[in-house]
Computed example of a mutant assay.
Amino acid sequence: MDVRETNRRVIEQFRAGGPVEGMHRDRLVLLTTAGRRTGRPHTTPMMFHRDDDVLLVVASNIGAPQHPDWYLNLVADRAVDIEIDGERYQGVAEVLEGDRREETWAMLKVTYPFVADHETRTERPIPVVALRRT
């Protein structure tokens, strides 16, 4: 599977406002980060969990040994663009740490068992990121 081609298709379908093939549109967010080396915008579709006015996303990378690029980008620059529900706005990313991360991670694993599977595939702690509107 070509991940870049899949992401391109998902982004196009999401922005067109119709169904997104193979995904639940109401669980998708498009997250745009600035490339940590180039500064160029990079948009990544991903699943989110809503917690009041905060969107939670996980940097599981499907259990790969390394963090996904979007996560490394937002660690370098926390300013992000968020597209959800036909709206686009600026936001800030916060990597959860300590007890807050552990409690949130435990809830996400129960709510979405596939992320627990991702955890079994890697030795790295999987980051949980809170996205807030600025």
Rank of each mutant, 00 (worst) to 15 (best):
E5K: 10
T6M: 08
N7W: 15
R8M: 10
V10G: 07
V10S: 06
E12V: 05
E12L: 09
Q13E: 12
F14W: 14
R15Q: 06
A16D: 10
G17Q: 13
G18P: 11
G22K: 07
H24A: 10
R25I: 09
R25Y: 10
V29Q: 08
T32E: 05
T32G: 07
G35M: 06
G39E: 01
P41D: 15
M46K: 07
M47Q: 11
H49P: 05
D51T: 05
D52P: 11
A59T: 14
N61R: 08
G63W: 14
A64V: 07
Q66S: 15
D69F: 06
L72I: 01
N73K: 06
L74M: 05
V75T: 06
I82R: 06
I82H: 15
E83V: 03
G86A: 12
E87A: 02
Q90A: 03
Q90R: 04
V92T: 03
A93C: 00
V95P: 06
L96D: 03
L96Q: 01
E97D: 01
E97F: 02
D99W: 08
D99L: 01
E103A: 15
T104I: 11
T104Q: 05
A106M: 10
M107V: 02
T111A: 11
Y112R: 13
F114I: 09
A116N: 07
D117G: 05
H118C: 07
T120R: 13
R121C: 00
T122R: 11
E123C: 05
P125E: 11
P125C: 14
I126S: 04
I126R: 05
P127G: 12
V129G: 14
A130W: 12
L131M: 04
